[in-house]
Amino acid sequence: PEAADLRALARHLYEAYLKYFPLTKAKARAILSGKTGDNATFVIHDMKSLMEGEQFLNCRQIPIQEHHISGQGPTNAVELRFFHSCQSRSAEAVREVTEFAKSIPGFTDLDLNDQVTLLKYGVIEVLIIMMAPLMNKDGTLISYGQIFMTREFLKSLRKPFCQMMEPKFEFSVKFNTLELDDSDMALFLAVIILSGDRPGLLNVKPIEQLQETVLHALELQLKLNHPDSLQLFAKLLQKMTDLRQIVTDHVHLLQLLKKTEVDMCLHPLLQEIMKDLY
C-alpha cells in the first residue's frame, strides 16, 4: 500500500481510539506524574483507604452477588467486592474494545463468527496492553484515573487475589520502556485484534490481509514517530508472545477462583469470553 494510505489508516485508528477509550495514555501519564494541576487522585494503599475509596469505584453489580456478599463478614468480602467492581469495569472495557474493533476498516465485513472469535481471543490481550499506560512500578490507576492503587496493597490481598496483578505489573513496567504513545497504541491494538491464528477461525485469509496492512501502517508509524528507537517494531511484535502467556495464566487464575470462591460469580459477558478459552 501507498505510504499516504497507511498514514490515513493510522489517523483513522487513532481517532477511533480517542473516541472509544476514555482514559488515554497521555492523560494517564499526566495524572501519574502529577501534572494535571489538581490533587484529586485518591490513593488506595490499605483496607481502610479501600473502604473509603469504594465510593469512587464503579460498583454496578449483579444484585444477587450484592446480596450474597453483604451476608459475609467485611474482611472476607472486601476482595470479592473489589473483584466484582473490577469485573464491571472489564465488561465495560470489552464494549469499548468491540466498538474500536468495529472501526477497523474491513472488520465488520468479516464472517460474523470470525468477528466473535477475534474478539473472544483478542479482548483480554487488548485489555492487558491497555493497562500498561495506567501503571508504573509502584501501582496503577483505576476507575478512569480517579484512583491510584498501590502495587504493595494488591500484593497484600489474600490468595489468589494477590497473584492476579503482579504479572501485569512486571509486563507493564517492561512494556512502558518502549515509550509508545496513543497513536502507536491504536495501531498495535488493531494488530492484536486481527490475529489470524485464533482457534476456530473459519476464513483466515481476509483477516491476515487486513492485519498485514495494519502491520505496514504500524511499521511506518514507528519509523516516523520514533526515528531513534532501533528495532522498535520487532520488539513490539515480540511482546505479543509474552502477552499470550499472561492471558493463559490469567484465565487459569480465574478458573481457580471460580472453584475456590463460593460467592464468586463471573459477569455474564466475561463468562462468555472465558468459556473454552485456552
Binding site: T98, E99, N113, V116, K120, P268, L269, E272
Partner: peptide, 21 residues
C-alpha cells in the same frame, strides 16, 4: 459460535450502551 456468545454477538451487531451491560 454465535449462540454461545450472545452478548458479544449483540455488541458486534449493535451499539450497546453501558446501561445494557
Amino acid at each position: 459460535l454465535k449462540e454461545k456468545h450472545k452478548i458479544l454477538h449483540q455488541l458486534l451487531q449493535n451499539s450497546t450502551s453501558p446501561v445494557d451491560l
